[in-house]
Write a protein that binds this DNA or RNA. Structure first.
Lengths: 338, 338
DNA sequence: TTGTAGGCGTTATCAG
DNA sequence: CTGATAACGCCTACAA
């Protein structure tokens, strides 16, 4: 099996009795090859088990079928669901995914970008809107379409699909206040740009309602986790015992807050309201079920690829289209104070 | 920026005043180039911003720097942690990861394998030991080292790193019985080969203790989730109300069981013991903390890459080495019946 | 230690 | 609609 010489276009060509370029065309632009020849070629390819050589194609055409994807984390559930959407969407296309893990570092993002770019990708998917100056310039000048995911704003590099973290946080906070909570707190981990925008949403709404208090805010740059949620809440409640609800940066933290509240015999939602962000699957299953802001991560991945594939097909770089996927408040028992 | 002609080896060569092959050598086998020339070349590369063309390299050498990774799921936390280990380890090497999502289908795995193989990867990482006949043959004959991860057995294709799911389940079940539980149940989702081996571990130990009862076993091929854990437990407890503990296929289910038990006012661990599998971070943070079998997923990914890189470096395919990473029982409050 | 010649498998370009 | 020829950028072999 191995050791056998690779089957090439030329092999298929001589089998059919035409020249290599015709086989190539039959593969990429079938409409330019006569139907019967096309069929013969298909048969020959099957019989010989011909598989195109991507490297040769890339070298000759100075293009690839690779879509580069840059995300800040491969373990965070939020991104893995986006990834799933991406992989799903890509399955019915000729494209491959090349994944890069930026680890929330824009320097690392820049490096990866350069590597990716040197491979002449067919398209790029990057996370967020906080690229470094250099990265932004590289992306602006890239010879392929670019999609920014996870957020929206007015100044897309090219395509963009996401939602407003600020508005999501505003909605969550408004809900807590509407439910009758009067001493709202905030727990945040990681505090990457998206987390910060969520914090601002919280702060603004709480301030507008005259209910903002800095001692009810706790944040850390550590990676978010359930354990961390429990720890942050423990600190927070000692520092601000009058706290009556917490808006969490994300669902891991929210779950940790719930567990720690249970440990301390603090009744949820009676004595403490809890609201998360992203609405991971487990939020609905918890006891009590936890209120959260639902975001459409699978869709985001899927549609990012669709946007990209369309743009590639139309050879239309820099369209400036922004797709707002929105979010949904999922009200659950964890925030029913009355 | 774009539109500029690509900087090639030849450009660097004429800049330095040597021939292209010397630059190539300076890059790949520096010891074969005189030190001062090496330095000059390094400078020229920097100044010109030369980036090697991977496609050209692959075509000319019929090798790539790509390590193909085949996993059954990108969303399952278990695999995303393995992935993190893989990406971490690969960072200090010249290799790139090409990820394939088999979705627990050996047919899909076979297809992906063929695609990967056609790209002449430097190495391959595949999940588990239940490849199809065809896949196994392809892997046996592959012109690169292969690592099987997640499991161990006597008949590796090449390298192998993982642990025994059967023994893990045996340990968990023995622990439940040791804690005094006498009517052990099993909840399983997905039921892929690894889940099935875990089930067998449970069944064997329970049977040996004379405590096995089929009505206390519930399984489904649906993907595991916290919600599903709650549902399975609800069904199970109605069908077998005498059940006094549950060994769960994995931690998602275990958490769902805990929540459902709370909803039904079933005391954990007093009336019900719960044990998970994998020991995801949240197990320790839950209230009560949930007993689980800790597995070393990050390490597994990291060391799989190391094994591969060594094998590639030594040009030694088919070594047959099997690394057993083991597992650890993490006893927590969810299984303290006395 | 360095260089020369040739080719890897495909596609672009220009003819017919 | 089909074909001949020349790249694409690098590496293997063999020489010097």
């Amino acid at each position: 099996m191995s050791g056998f010489k690779r089957v090439t276009l030329a092999d298929v060509a001589s089998r059919v009795g035409v020249s290599a370029i015709t086989i190539s065309r039959a593969l990429r632009t079938p409409e330019k090859v006569s139907p019967q020849l096309r069929e013969e070629i298909a048969r020959a390819i099957d019989e010989l088990g011909y598989v195109p050589d991507r490297a040769a194609r890339a070298l000759a055409s100075s293009r690839t079928d690779v879509i580069g994807v840059l995300i800040p984390s491969v373990t965070n559930n939020v991104f893995s669901e986006v990834l799933l959407g991406i992989y799903t969407a890509v399955e019915n296309t000729p494209f491959d995914i090349q994944l890069g893990n930026t680890r929330y570092s824009s320097l690392k993002e820049e490096d990866l970008l350069k590597v990716f770019l040197s491979q002449k990708p067919a398209g790029l998917i990057v996370t967020g809107i906080d690229q470094s100056e250099t990265s932004r310039a590289l992306l602006k000048n890239a010879a392929c379409p670019v999609v920014q995911i996870m957020e929206i704003d007015e100044d897309p590099i090219d395509l963009m699909i996401g939602f407003s973290h600020y508005e999501g946080a505003r909605t969550a906070t408004a809900h807590l206040i509407e439910q009758g909570y009067r001493r709202p707190g905030f727990a945040g981990a990681r505090m990457d740009p998206r987390s910060q925008r969520r914090f601002r949403g919280f702060r603004d709404v709480a301030t507008e309602a005259g209910l903002y208090a800095e001692e009810r805010v706790i944040t850390t740059t550590a990676a978010s986790s359930v354990t961390l949620g429990a720890q942050l809440f423990a600190e927070l409640i000692e520092r601000a015992p009058d706290l009556d609800c917490v808006f969490c940066n994300n669902d891991d933290l929210a779950l940790g807050v719930l567990f720690e509240a249970q440990r301390r015999r603090i009744a949820v939602p009676g004595q403490l309201g809890i609201c998360g962000f992203n609405d991971l699957e487990m939020m609905a299953a918890a006891e009590p079920p936890i209120t959260s802001i639902r975001t459409f991560r699978h869709d985001m991945g899927r549609r990012a690829v669709e946007l990209l594939v369309d743009a590639i097909a139309q050879g239309r770089p820099r369209s400036g289209a922004v797709v707002d996927l929105g979010f949904e408040l999922r009200k659950r028992s964890s925030t029913r104070s009355r």
